[in-house]
Design a protein around this nucleic acid. Structure first.
Ligand SMILES: [Mn+2]
Ligand SMILES: [Mn+2]
Ligand SMILES: [Mn+2]
Ligand SMILES: [Mn+2]
Lengths: 218, 218
DNA sequence: TAAAAAGTTTAGACAAATCTAAAAATAAAT
DNA sequence: ATTTATTTTTAGATTTGTCTAAACTTTTTA
């Protein structure tokens, strides 16, 4: 069964939202795929007819197992291309997402197999997100956001939750990347902001909103 | 001005046919883009309104200079991706075309610039076709098909005109690739077939139809 | 040069994906 | 338990690219 680019984008978005918020409101999905609620309803009916989602009018919807498999395959392609763009073409991690958003729809299993081999089977994309293997398996990592990490231990930035352009911009300013080593110096109770010491840099303070989005391994 | 995948495919097809046959019949274009003559007319009107082709009903049509520029840019992307697929991912030259047919529509100038640098500015794709540079310039090569080449001189296969799957299949059987060294032993007047001697192989005979499609440099 | 053939365009329809505006169902608040 | 607010669905249009069948031009041929 071959799917349109639009269908694939919906499936990936449902997977993402399903993971984040347990129940997926159609309005949120509409925002995610940059469309209107009415269009979402149309697509939901189509995806239901293709057995990609469980769906009853006015009720919540979720991906079927088949749907999850498809989503993981698209995510795999997306992240492999992002890895390629950063580690082979030398692009920046904040400019590869929109390109991968298009490349992920090129459907050719041999291509992806060859790409995966060429990149030597990477496990994480440039934003620290895990790359599902060909069977859709994801290796999980023990990580916690900066706020919930222990004080004065060396932490390694492993992934970024909010990957918006504004966030990428802020991280560039702080000189924070995947792999950056830092220590949590202290937390301020007033606003939840935290002081951090990035290796080779002077200590700085980052807001609670930012700290919650930066995940680290110990 | 951003163009749809369909528009881009038409533009590329017109460029190709315009190069091959000087005048482009709509029916040929229909076959090339795998559609019907009526659909071609619709698209021609749209491309005319966007000043991509010169067009008067029932008259011949040709690409404007702007149209040629667009075509060359799509061809550049197509061939760079083919080069990548063969020389980096290790795919075969007979399986890359349909993939490049999709990748050529990913529109991001920085991506193509980086890809070109990564591949070290290749001049020819895996089928021996020239890759236009970023300004649309093509370096021409002195080459002639086997039939029109001199006898008993060492020739190097430089490009293949007909790149259909059936032709690729036949070339694989003959063990002919881009770069293959061969000699034209003799020509047979009866059917125009020719005897060739490929380096390290026993002499064989190839039909006129095949020989006309294999271009070589001396 | 008139009839036949070939090539091109129009007319009308359709599928996919989207939209706005209005109706219907569910959830929240009084 | 009603009323109000929010969310979701329908109804009807629109855009893009396609199709078939019929009409129209141009070219070929007799
Ligand atoms: Mn996408
Ligand atoms: Mn990513
Ligand atoms: Mn194409
Ligand atoms: Mn090629």
């Amino acid at each position: 069964m071959k799917l349109s680019t639009s269908e694939e984008n919906y499936i990936k978005a449902i997977f993402k939202l399903q993971d984040l918020h347990n129940t997926v409101p159609a309005t949120l999905l509409a925002a995610e795929v940059k469309t209107k609620a009415a269009s979402v309803t149309d697509m939901l009916k189509k995806l239901y007819s293709k057995k990609i989602i469980h769906y009853k009018p006015y009720k919540n919807f979720t991906l079927t197992n088949a749907g999850k498999k498809i989503a993981l395959d698209i995510i795999r392609k997306h992240r492999l291309w992002e890895y390629f763009l950063v580690h082979k073409l030398g692009m920046n991690w904040d400019e590869v997402h929109p390109i991968a958003e298009e490349m992920e729809h090129v459907n050719n299993p041999l291509l992806i197999q060859k790409l995966d081999e060429y990149l030597e089977h990477p496990c994480f994309d440039p934003h620290g997100d895990p790359i599902p293997d060909k069977n859709g398996n994801i290796r999980m990592v023990e990580q916690s956001d900066i706020c919930s990490s222990p004080i004065k231990k060396t932490l390694t930035v492993s992934s970024i939750k909010d990957q918006s352009i504004t966030m990428m911009d802020l991280l560039k300013h702080y000189q924070i990347k995947i792999g950056t080593k830092l220590k949590l110096v202290r937390k301020f109770d007033f606003d939840g902001s935290v002081e951090i010491k990035i290796e080779k840099l002077a200590p700085t303070i980052i807001s609670n909103q930012v700290a919650k989005n930066i995940f680290c391994t110990q």
